[in-house]
Design a protein around this nucleic acid. Structure first.
Lengths: 231, 231
DNA sequence: AATATAAGGTGTATTTTTTACACTAAGCAA
DNA sequence: TTGCTTAGTGTAAAAAATACACCTTATATT
């Protein structure tokens, strides 16, 4: 046994939930599958990881191949491996999410055969998905909903310059509840992670709002907070 | 292609971080490996998942086989799949953690060949572990350290009946900082998830403390709290 | 030019939560 | 009985969260 070590190969996939915020709506990327099983169904962008490929790189490659989007940092959130989840055998999948700004990135072109098209779909209108992807989506959505309350991940979804109202709308969509304007602003500004710009919104038919930027420097300095029991 | 669907099998492992609290020390379970690679090294309890086995069940089985502990609920926290992590090929591992009470469970007997012995080791004295298990441990420890601040997971580590001082000690060990006695008690009791018993500590050579129980009923009722932005 | 429309932007008082802090009480042992 | 050790307790101050409404500004319309 010990003189003849076995060699193992894993067969597994990654699936990605890519969140985007567009025209006041929270959306995710879906692909229409062009391959059995579940040919013609909508699914999360995902595919098999190559034998000699890091999982994160695979996630990036697969997202690129199925949607045309490149260089997007994703975060792993759970691995799904229920026995019946793939009709062709035991295939576990490592699930990732990312939140991206849509500015300019709207041209989605799969550069692969396994996806027929990629589309943005409002999280409120997600159809039944292939495999256990509906479940994966629910779990991922829950994850970011939780995370947004204590980590500044919302900024990744907004254009570089944004108004406080846009930021608040985003929070409201993700948390699925109305927030108080004055309290929201007070609190958000108190974190001191935003940089107020000398610029205003353009092209609106009402009073233009100030624009802000997320300030990574300030964030790094000010976000060492701890939860509960600080002493 | 579509007429001859491929059949896939995954080869992957689970690894478990089992936390226990004993004599004021936070410990985890390690096994001494009895099999190449890393024979003789300490490692997290873990092994290959069978083709027709749910991952959670596998985690339970493997924990039982390598330590003799049964029926322990574990929570998945991350999947590790770096390319070089297993010397015999691509093997990803799904990592779980659990927190258990040690009362009575101290007889550890591997019922398998791959583990020579299982031991409790203080988290402050963990040696270098096999594979990437040191990294897995660090990530898992970080996870529970975070989680303990907003979820009542500490109780799982204590005997059914415990004193507030024991509870505080546990928080202090996990958070690695001193807490204020009065504030700790006030806060903990304010959650209203503990049941005060009519019993006192026994066998101590000083004033005996009141015993408490974690009250699941109350917990379910009182722990619907939300973080930040509640309106 | 006047008016309507629509969102931007702002402050304060109240309540709740968090923090800091030190002594007496009880039980056992010598 | 005294000493030792841990249990157990309250209050004031500071900080954070909440509730709440009106004026301002820019544009579009007549």
């Amino acid at each position: 046994m010990e003189n003849l070590p076995a060699h193992f190969d894993s067969v597994f996939t990654v699936d990605c939930i890519i969140f985007g915020f567009d025209e006041g709506e929270l959306k995710i990327l879906l692909i229409e599958r062009n391959e059995e099983p579940f040919k013609g169904w909508f699914a999360l962008p995902g595919y098999f990881v190559e034998k000699t490929e890091a999982i994160e790189s695979a996630a990036q490659r697969i997202l690129y191949e199925s949607t045309g989007l490149r260089g997007i940092y994703m975060e792993q959130f759970y691995t799904f491996g229920a026995l019946g989840r793939h009709p062709q055998g035991r295939v576990i999948t490592v699930a990732y999410y990312a939140m991206i700004r849509l500015t300019g990135q709207k041209d989605l072109k799969p550069v692969t055969d396994f996806a027929k098209q990629a589309v943005w779909v409002n999280v409120k209108d997600i159809p039944e998905l292939a495999f256990d992807h509906s479940r994966i989506f629910r779990k991922g959505f829950e994850k970011i909903r939780n995370k947004i309350s204590y980590q500044p991940i919302a900024f990744e979804l907004l254009p570089e310059k944004f108004t406080l109202t846009q930021l608040q709308n985003l929070y409201e969509v993700i948390l699925n509840k109305k927030l108080d304007k004055r309290n929201f602003r007070k609190k958000m500004l108190s974190y001191d992670i935003l940089k107020e710009l000398d610029e205003k919104q353009k092209g609106v038919s009402y009073r233009a709002a100030k624009l802000y930027k997320f300030d990574k420097r300030k964030f790094a300095k000010n976000f060492h907070k701890e939860l509960s029991f600080t002493k």
